[in-house]
Design a protein around this nucleic acid. Sequence first.
DNA 1: CTTCTTGCAAACCATTTGCATCATT
DNA 2: AATGATGCAAATGGTTTGCAAGAAG
Lengths: 148, 148
Amino acid sequence: MENAIRVFSGYLNSRGLKLTRERKAVLQQLFSHQGHLEAEELVHGLRRRKARASRATIYRTLDLLVQSGLVRKVDLGQGHSHYELALDRPHHEHMICLECGRVIEFSDKTIHRSLDELCKRERFKRTSHRFQVFGYCQGCVNRKAAVK
Amino acid sequence: MENAIRVFSGYLNSRGLKLTRERKAVLQQLFSHQGHLEAEELVHGLRRRKARASRATIYRTLDLLVQSGLVRKVDLGQGHSHYELALDRPHHEHMICLECGRVIEFSDKTIHRSLDELCKRERFKRTSHRFQVFGYCQGCVNRKAAVK
DNA sequence: CTTCTTGCAAACCATTTGCATCATT
DNA sequence: AATGATGCAAATGGTTTGCAAGAAG
Protein backbone atom coordinates (compact mmCIF):
# COMPACT_ATOMS: atom_id res chain seq x y z
CA MET A 1 0.00 0.00 0.00
CA GLU A 2 2.70 2.49 1.02
CA ASN A 3 4.69 0.98 -1.74
CA ALA A 4 1.87 1.46 -4.20
CA ILE A 5 1.53 5.10 -3.32
CA ARG A 6 5.23 5.51 -3.87
CA VAL A 7 4.99 3.89 -7.28
CA PHE A 8 2.02 6.00 -8.24
CA SER A 9 3.67 9.14 -7.03
CA GLY A 10 6.73 8.28 -9.07
CA TYR A 11 4.63 7.70 -12.13
CA LEU A 12 2.83 11.00 -11.71
CA ASN A 13 6.03 12.91 -11.13
CA SER A 14 7.60 11.44 -14.21
CA ARG A 15 4.89 13.13 -16.26
CA GLY A 16 4.62 16.33 -14.33
CA LEU A 17 1.32 15.34 -12.73
CA LYS A 18 0.33 15.83 -9.12
CA LEU A 19 -0.49 13.44 -6.33
CA THR A 20 -3.70 14.91 -4.99
CA ARG A 21 -5.85 13.97 -2.03
CA GLU A 22 -8.45 12.51 -4.41
CA ARG A 23 -5.96 10.36 -6.28
CA LYS A 24 -4.56 9.02 -3.07
CA ALA A 25 -8.06 8.25 -1.80
CA VAL A 26 -8.95 6.26 -4.90
CA LEU A 27 -5.83 4.15 -4.56
CA GLN A 28 -6.51 3.56 -0.88
CA GLN A 29 -10.05 2.52 -1.58
CA LEU A 30 -8.82 0.01 -4.14
CA PHE A 31 -6.61 -1.48 -1.44
CA SER A 32 -9.32 -1.67 1.18
CA HIS A 33 -11.52 -3.66 -1.20
CA GLN A 34 -9.14 -6.30 -2.44
CA GLY A 35 -11.43 -7.70 -5.12
CA HIS A 36 -12.67 -6.50 -8.47
CA LEU A 37 -14.09 -3.06 -8.00
CA GLU A 38 -16.33 -1.19 -10.34
CA ALA A 39 -16.26 2.57 -10.66
CA GLU A 40 -19.63 2.90 -8.97
CA GLU A 41 -18.37 1.04 -5.90
CA LEU A 42 -15.52 3.49 -5.66
CA VAL A 43 -17.91 6.41 -5.74
CA HIS A 44 -19.89 4.97 -2.86
CA GLY A 45 -16.95 3.66 -0.93
CA LEU A 46 -15.26 7.05 -1.00
CA ARG A 47 -18.47 8.80 -0.12
CA ARG A 48 -18.87 6.57 2.93
CA ARG A 49 -15.47 7.48 4.26
CA LYS A 50 -16.16 11.15 3.56
CA ALA A 51 -13.33 11.18 1.04
CA ARG A 52 -15.70 11.98 -1.77
CA ALA A 53 -14.45 12.38 -5.28
CA SER A 54 -16.55 13.00 -8.33
CA ARG A 55 -17.22 10.28 -10.82
CA ALA A 56 -15.17 12.25 -13.35
CA THR A 57 -12.15 12.31 -11.08
CA ILE A 58 -12.52 8.65 -10.28
CA TYR A 59 -12.56 7.68 -13.93
CA ARG A 60 -9.65 9.97 -14.66
CA THR A 61 -7.69 8.51 -11.77
CA LEU A 62 -8.44 4.94 -12.76
CA ASP A 63 -7.04 5.73 -16.17
CA LEU A 64 -3.83 6.99 -14.63
CA LEU A 65 -3.59 3.94 -12.39
CA VAL A 66 -3.99 1.64 -15.35
CA GLN A 67 -1.32 3.54 -17.27
CA SER A 68 1.01 3.37 -14.32
CA GLY A 69 0.62 -0.38 -14.28
CA LEU A 70 -0.74 -0.45 -10.74
CA VAL A 71 -4.21 -1.44 -11.78
CA ARG A 72 -5.72 -3.64 -14.44
CA LYS A 73 -9.01 -2.85 -16.12
CA VAL A 74 -10.97 -6.03 -16.58
CA ASP A 75 -14.14 -6.74 -18.45
CA LEU A 76 -16.23 -9.34 -16.69
CA GLY A 77 -18.96 -9.20 -19.29
CA GLN A 78 -21.28 -7.08 -17.21
CA GLY A 79 -21.49 -4.07 -19.43
CA HIS A 80 -19.11 -1.98 -17.37
CA SER A 81 -15.48 -2.26 -16.38
CA HIS A 82 -13.96 -3.64 -13.22
CA TYR A 83 -10.59 -2.68 -11.83
CA GLU A 84 -8.18 -4.86 -9.92
CA LEU A 85 -4.84 -4.22 -8.31
CA ALA A 86 -2.01 -5.46 -10.47
CA LEU A 87 0.88 -4.85 -8.11
CA ASP A 88 2.75 -8.07 -7.50
CA ARG A 89 -0.18 -10.01 -8.86
CA PRO A 90 0.59 -12.06 -11.94
CA HIS A 91 -1.77 -11.99 -14.86
CA HIS A 92 -4.67 -14.37 -14.37
CA GLU A 93 -8.05 -15.20 -15.82
CA HIS A 94 -11.55 -15.13 -14.39
CA MET A 95 -14.38 -17.55 -13.88
CA ILE A 96 -17.57 -15.61 -13.30
CA CYS A 97 -20.65 -17.03 -11.63
CA LEU A 98 -23.73 -15.93 -13.51
CA GLU A 99 -25.86 -16.40 -10.41
CA CYS A 100 -24.00 -14.66 -7.60
CA GLY A 101 -21.34 -12.75 -9.50
CA ARG A 102 -18.51 -14.43 -7.68
CA VAL A 103 -15.20 -14.26 -9.48
CA ILE A 104 -12.72 -17.10 -9.24
CA GLU A 105 -9.26 -16.30 -10.47
CA PHE A 106 -7.10 -18.87 -12.15
CA SER A 107 -4.07 -19.11 -14.29
CA ASP A 108 -2.85 -22.11 -16.16
CA LYS A 109 0.55 -22.78 -17.63
CA THR A 110 -0.67 -25.23 -20.22
CA ILE A 111 -3.15 -22.72 -21.54
CA HIS A 112 -0.51 -19.99 -21.72
CA ARG A 113 1.85 -22.31 -23.53
CA SER A 114 -0.76 -23.36 -26.07
CA LEU A 115 -1.61 -19.77 -26.58
CA ASP A 116 1.94 -18.76 -27.33
CA GLU A 117 2.27 -21.56 -29.84
CA LEU A 118 -0.91 -20.46 -31.51
CA CYS A 119 0.31 -16.92 -31.82
CA LYS A 120 3.52 -18.10 -33.36
CA ARG A 121 1.63 -20.24 -35.85
CA GLU A 122 -0.66 -17.34 -36.79
CA ARG A 123 2.22 -14.87 -36.79
CA PHE A 124 0.30 -12.78 -34.33
CA LYS A 125 2.19 -10.55 -31.95
CA ARG A 126 0.10 -10.67 -28.84
CA THR A 127 0.16 -7.91 -26.29
CA SER A 128 -2.37 -9.36 -23.88
CA HIS A 129 -5.16 -11.80 -23.61
CA ARG A 130 -8.30 -12.18 -21.65
CA PHE A 131 -9.93 -15.44 -20.74
CA GLN A 132 -13.30 -15.58 -19.16
CA VAL A 133 -15.38 -18.54 -18.17
CA PHE A 134 -19.05 -18.07 -17.41
CA GLY A 135 -21.07 -20.54 -15.42
CA TYR A 136 -22.16 -21.38 -11.92
CA CYS A 137 -20.08 -21.78 -8.83
CA GLN A 138 -20.48 -24.70 -6.47
CA GLY A 139 -22.51 -22.78 -3.93
CA CYS A 140 -25.07 -21.63 -6.44
CA VAL A 141 -25.38 -25.07 -7.97
CA ASN A 142 -26.06 -26.53 -4.52
CA ARG A 143 -28.53 -23.84 -3.65
CA LYS A 144 -30.46 -24.47 -6.83
CA ALA A 145 -30.50 -28.21 -6.19
CA ALA A 146 -31.78 -27.61 -2.66
CA VAL A 147 -34.66 -25.47 -3.88
CA LYS A 148 -35.96 -28.19 -6.19
CA MET B 1 -29.32 -19.73 -45.46
CA GLU B 2 -32.65 -21.31 -46.42
CA ASN B 3 -32.00 -23.66 -43.60
CA ALA B 4 -31.34 -20.81 -41.20
CA ILE B 5 -34.59 -19.11 -42.12
CA ARG B 6 -36.39 -22.35 -41.47
CA VAL B 7 -34.77 -22.69 -38.06
CA PHE B 8 -35.55 -19.10 -37.18
CA SER B 9 -39.11 -19.42 -38.35
CA GLY B 10 -39.50 -22.56 -36.26
CA TYR B 11 -38.12 -20.77 -33.23
CA LEU B 12 -40.46 -17.83 -33.70
CA ASN B 13 -43.48 -20.05 -34.22
CA SER B 14 -42.72 -22.00 -31.11
CA ARG B 15 -43.22 -18.81 -29.13
CA GLY B 16 -46.07 -17.35 -31.07
CA LEU B 17 -43.90 -14.75 -32.76
CA LYS B 18 -43.98 -13.73 -36.38
CA LEU B 19 -41.45 -13.95 -39.20
CA THR B 20 -41.59 -10.44 -40.60
CA ARG B 21 -39.92 -8.87 -43.59
CA GLU B 22 -37.53 -7.00 -41.25
CA ARG B 23 -36.50 -10.09 -39.33
CA LYS B 24 -35.84 -11.99 -42.53
CA ALA B 25 -33.78 -9.08 -43.86
CA VAL B 26 -31.58 -8.96 -40.76
CA LEU B 27 -30.84 -12.65 -41.02
CA GLN B 28 -30.06 -12.33 -44.74
CA GLN B 29 -27.73 -9.45 -44.10
CA LEU B 30 -25.87 -11.51 -41.52
CA PHE B 31 -25.35 -14.18 -44.16
CA SER B 32 -24.15 -11.83 -46.84
CA HIS B 33 -21.45 -10.49 -44.54
CA GLN B 34 -19.91 -13.69 -43.24
CA GLY B 35 -17.70 -12.07 -40.59
CA HIS B 36 -18.31 -10.39 -37.28
CA LEU B 37 -20.97 -7.75 -37.79
CA GLU B 38 -21.81 -4.93 -35.51
CA ALA B 39 -25.30 -3.52 -35.19
CA GLU B 40 -24.33 -0.32 -36.96
CA GLU B 41 -23.13 -2.26 -40.01
CA LEU B 42 -26.49 -3.96 -40.18
CA VAL B 43 -28.27 -0.62 -40.16
CA HIS B 44 -26.19 0.60 -43.08
CA GLY B 45 -26.15 -2.70 -44.94
CA LEU B 46 -29.91 -2.92 -44.84
CA ARG B 47 -30.31 0.70 -45.81
CA ARG B 48 -28.13 0.13 -48.87
CA ARG B 49 -30.27 -2.70 -50.11
CA LYS B 50 -33.39 -0.62 -49.42
CA ALA B 51 -34.52 -3.16 -46.84
CA ARG B 52 -34.29 -0.58 -44.09
CA ALA B 53 -35.08 -1.50 -40.54
CA SER B 54 -34.83 0.75 -37.53
CA ARG B 55 -32.04 0.35 -35.05
CA ALA B 56 -34.63 -0.72 -32.49
CA THR B 57 -35.87 -3.52 -34.68
CA ILE B 58 -32.36 -4.62 -35.49
CA TYR B 59 -31.43 -4.89 -31.83
CA ARG B 60 -34.66 -6.66 -31.04
CA THR B 61 -34.10 -9.10 -33.88
CA LEU B 62 -30.51 -9.77 -32.89
CA ASP B 63 -31.76 -10.69 -29.45
CA LEU B 64 -34.16 -13.18 -30.93
CA LEU B 65 -31.47 -14.63 -33.16
CA VAL B 66 -29.18 -15.09 -30.19
CA GLN B 67 -31.93 -16.77 -28.21
CA SER B 68 -32.72 -19.05 -31.11
CA GLY B 69 -29.10 -20.15 -31.15
CA LEU B 70 -28.53 -19.01 -34.72
CA VAL B 71 -26.27 -16.16 -33.77
CA ARG B 72 -23.60 -15.56 -31.15
CA LYS B 73 -23.08 -12.20 -29.55
CA VAL B 74 -19.37 -11.59 -29.13
CA ASP B 75 -17.49 -8.91 -27.31
CA LEU B 76 -14.29 -8.02 -29.11
CA GLY B 77 -13.36 -5.40 -26.56
CA GLN B 78 -14.42 -2.49 -28.71
CA GLY B 79 -17.12 -1.09 -26.48
CA HIS B 80 -19.95 -2.53 -28.53
CA SER B 81 -21.11 -6.00 -29.43
CA HIS B 82 -20.46 -7.98 -32.56
CA TYR B 83 -22.64 -10.75 -33.88
CA GLU B 84 -21.57 -13.86 -35.74
CA LEU B 85 -23.48 -16.73 -37.27
CA ALA B 86 -23.41 -19.77 -35.04
CA LEU B 87 -25.10 -22.24 -37.35
CA ASP B 88 -22.81 -25.20 -37.98
CA ARG B 89 -19.87 -23.19 -36.68
CA PRO B 90 -18.22 -24.64 -33.62
CA HIS B 91 -17.33 -22.40 -30.74
CA HIS B 92 -14.02 -20.64 -31.29
CA GLU B 93 -11.94 -17.81 -29.89
CA HIS B 94 -10.72 -14.56 -31.37
CA MET B 95 -7.39 -12.85 -31.90
CA ILE B 96 -7.98 -9.17 -32.50
CA CYS B 97 -5.50 -6.86 -34.19
CA LEU B 98 -5.37 -3.57 -32.32
CA GLU B 99 -4.12 -1.82 -35.44
CA CYS B 100 -6.45 -2.87 -38.23
CA GLY B 101 -9.20 -4.61 -36.32
CA ARG B 102 -8.74 -7.90 -38.14
CA VAL B 103 -10.13 -10.88 -36.30
CA ILE B 104 -8.46 -14.26 -36.52
CA GLU B 105 -10.51 -17.15 -35.25
CA PHE B 106 -8.93 -20.09 -33.56
CA SER B 107 -9.85 -22.99 -31.42
CA ASP B 108 -7.50 -25.23 -29.53
CA LYS B 109 -8.16 -28.65 -28.08
CA THR B 110 -5.44 -28.41 -25.48
CA ILE B 111 -6.84 -25.20 -24.15
CA HIS B 112 -10.33 -26.62 -23.98
CA ARG B 113 -9.08 -29.69 -22.19
CA SER B 114 -7.13 -27.67 -19.62
CA LEU B 115 -10.14 -25.51 -19.12
CA ASP B 116 -12.41 -28.44 -18.39
CA GLU B 117 -9.95 -29.80 -15.88
CA LEU B 118 -9.77 -26.43 -14.19
CA CYS B 119 -13.51 -26.22 -13.92
CA LYS B 120 -13.64 -29.65 -12.39
CA ARG B 121 -10.98 -28.69 -9.89
CA GLU B 122 -12.78 -25.49 -8.95
CA ARG B 123 -16.17 -27.22 -9.00
CA PHE B 124 -17.35 -24.65 -11.45
CA LYS B 125 -20.13 -25.57 -13.85
CA ARG B 126 -19.20 -23.67 -16.94
CA THR B 127 -21.78 -22.68 -19.52
CA SER B 128 -19.49 -20.91 -21.91
CA HIS B 129 -16.17 -19.23 -22.15
CA ARG B 130 -14.63 -16.46 -24.10
CA PHE B 131 -11.02 -16.17 -25.00
CA GLN B 132 -9.60 -13.11 -26.61
CA VAL B 133 -6.08 -12.28 -27.60
CA PHE B 134 -5.15 -8.71 -28.39
CA GLY B 135 -2.10 -7.77 -30.38
CA TYR B 136 -0.92 -7.11 -33.91
CA CYS B 137 -1.35 -9.20 -37.00
CA GLN B 138 1.51 -9.96 -39.34
CA GLY B 139 0.46 -7.38 -41.91
CA CYS B 140 0.39 -4.55 -39.42
CA VAL B 141 3.72 -5.55 -37.91
CA ASN B 142 5.29 -5.52 -41.38
CA ARG B 143 3.74 -2.23 -42.30
CA LYS B 144 5.09 -0.63 -39.15
CA ALA B 145 8.57 -2.02 -39.78
CA ALA B 146 8.48 -0.64 -43.33
CA VAL B 147 7.59 2.85 -42.14
CA LYS B 148 10.57 3.06 -39.86
C1' DC C 1 -59.73 -8.75 -35.92
C1' DT C 2 -56.41 -9.84 -32.62
C1' DT C 3 -51.88 -9.94 -31.39
C1' DC C 4 -47.45 -9.04 -32.44
C1' DT C 5 -44.23 -5.53 -34.74
C1' DT C 6 -42.46 -1.49 -36.19
C1' DG C 7 -40.39 3.21 -35.95
C1' DC C 8 -39.73 7.16 -33.52
C1' DA C 9 -38.12 9.64 -29.93
C1' DA C 10 -37.02 9.65 -25.40
C1' DA C 11 -34.67 7.12 -21.81
C1' DC C 12 -30.68 4.67 -20.10
C1' DC C 13 -26.13 3.67 -18.36
C1' DA C 14 -21.37 3.82 -18.28
C1' DT C 15 -18.00 6.86 -19.46
C1' DT C 16 -15.93 11.22 -21.29
C1' DT C 17 -15.33 16.10 -21.85
C1' DG C 18 -15.55 21.45 -21.62
C1' DC C 19 -15.04 24.85 -18.60
C1' DA C 20 -14.75 27.80 -14.66
C1' DT C 21 -12.88 27.32 -10.12
C1' DC C 22 -9.60 25.43 -6.90
C1' DA C 23 -5.25 23.21 -5.18
C1' DT C 24 -0.31 21.61 -5.64
C1' DT C 25 4.21 22.38 -6.58
C1' DA D 1 2.35 32.46 -9.58
C1' DA D 2 1.88 28.76 -12.84
C1' DT D 3 0.32 24.56 -14.12
C1' DG D 4 -2.57 20.92 -13.16
C1' DA D 5 -6.74 19.02 -10.96
C1' DT D 6 -11.44 19.13 -9.56
C1' DG D 7 -16.59 19.18 -9.90
C1' DC D 8 -20.37 20.04 -12.39
C1' DA D 9 -23.28 19.51 -15.97
C1' DA D 10 -23.70 18.57 -20.57
C1' DA D 11 -22.24 15.40 -24.28
C1' DT D 12 -21.37 10.83 -25.98
C1' DG D 13 -22.16 6.19 -27.80
C1' DG D 14 -24.24 1.92 -27.61
C1' DT D 15 -28.41 -0.05 -26.49
C1' DT D 16 -33.27 -0.29 -24.62
C1' DT D 17 -38.01 1.09 -24.09
C1' DG D 18 -42.86 3.36 -24.23
C1' DC D 19 -46.20 4.17 -27.23
C1' DA D 20 -49.12 5.06 -31.23
C1' DA D 21 -49.62 3.37 -35.80
C1' DG D 22 -49.12 -0.65 -38.93
C1' DA D 23 -48.90 -5.57 -40.56
C1' DA D 24 -48.91 -10.69 -40.06
C1' DG D 25 -51.60 -14.79 -38.90
